[in-house]
Design a protein around this nucleic acid. Sequence first.
DNA 1: GGGGAGAGATGCCGC
DNA 2: GCGGCATTTCTCCCC
Lengths: 243, 243
Amino acid sequence: MQDFVNWFRSWVNSGCLLVFAANCEVRYSGRAESYLPKGDRLVMIKPDNSVHVHQPSGNMPVNHMREGAQQVIEEVDGCWVVRSSHAVNKEELLIQLHKVYFFQEQLLDDGKKVVVAGTEADMAEMIYDHPEIIEAGFTPLSREEHTKYGFIDVFGFDGDNNLVVIECKRQTADLHAVTQLRRYVEKIKQSKGLDKVRGIIASPEISANAKKMLEDWGFGWRRIKPPKFLEKYDKSQQRLDYY
Amino acid sequence: MQDFVNWFRSWVNSGCLLVFAANCEVRYSGRAESYLPKGDRLVMIKPDNSVHVHQPSGNMPVNHMREGAQQVIEEVDGCWVVRSSHAVNKEELLIQLHKVYFFQEQLLDDGKKVVVAGTEADMAEMIYDHPEIIEAGFTPLSREEHTKYGFIDVFGFDGDNNLVVIECKRQTADLHAVTQLRRYVEKIKQSKGLDKVRGIIASPEISANAKKMLEDWGFGWRRIKPPKFLEKYDKSQQRLDYY
DNA sequence: GGGGAGAGATGCCGC
DNA sequence: GCGGCATTTCTCCCC
């Protein structure tokens, strides 16, 4: 343990990523309060001073501090504690150490950003490029006009010159999506002083309840799948190739 | 590298957590498509076979596979690749390794769950225990009856025997909270054939727009702060104490 | 630069 | 397995 304490103190602010496994208790106070009883966890502290406590299962860290925290190790009542605090966010994380299994540090050089396709914005883009997938005669507004309406995904006119608001969802549209669309339609009606504004949800799927509420409100739905520009699926090999 | 490959193969399905740092490229295909160019990252694979790729900064993993994936290491075009695939979810993650800096495995024993205070459920609990914080004469329904109505936070009668639906929000209530409350009230009105059902939002704050919409719909608001049982803030010391 | 408000994404829980 | 909701969120826009 003393090895770990000395090493921890020389590591602080070294710019290295730190990772260690330990038997510990964890306490958090900030936006919520939590306590995690004694058990084995993996702790990672990044060069940006974010802290991540992981249990052996589960997708999310059981506790974490965001970047900009300050870390110290100190003895409290005969027990070593890693104290991570974030004055601005009024948050504090305490990791009470009972046994440290291993520890390791590493300098990581990485400035690259991930490139993603298949988002909601890609769906809107696709509808702009191929408005006929909504319906014959549908004409989106120019992108310049569109930006004035901010949060609406796609905005245009149908063949009868009715305004149409389209809300895109990457996956199954739910009740929330319908109430959202309804708010937008009512907002546009009001600001334009219009009587009729159509609302359409574009998504690969829609839940039964959402479909019902949509129809109750006189809105429509189009089955549209988000584009996956990077994907090249080779069925014969049952694997994925890129570029 | 060959050490790592051999070690990786003996580690697979050992029940240990695995962590390594490497210079790598990462490709993902599944719910979306992504590509991350060459750089240094930390990779963690848990005993539940979830995979987490972390860059040296950022709160979230840049890529991850959820529990139940299958991991193999294989040589592709002269380069070693960790392939993680999830047949059910039709997801695949490829980590192309250029250099491995360190690797470590550890058996972690942990069955404990985190205890959180200050959630929406805690607020509902508090209202059950102290119904007078809503208003004099308010009587919540028993928890058993309450479960019949599903996801409504608190449900009861006021002094005039009107039904009251209460929606709790941990922080500032927004437009979404109001539309949610409205859905619940309308649902109850319909299923009970009632003319008058009151709706109340309980939250520490409420946005101006939400307040307005709330009043337009004849609903009410009570300023209620989520309980933080674990917190004891010692102002004189400007630090936190627990228990 | 800090705070507020709205929208988005993802995990989790219950049916 | 799916639907619905919560969240230790994120981001942008405003001041």
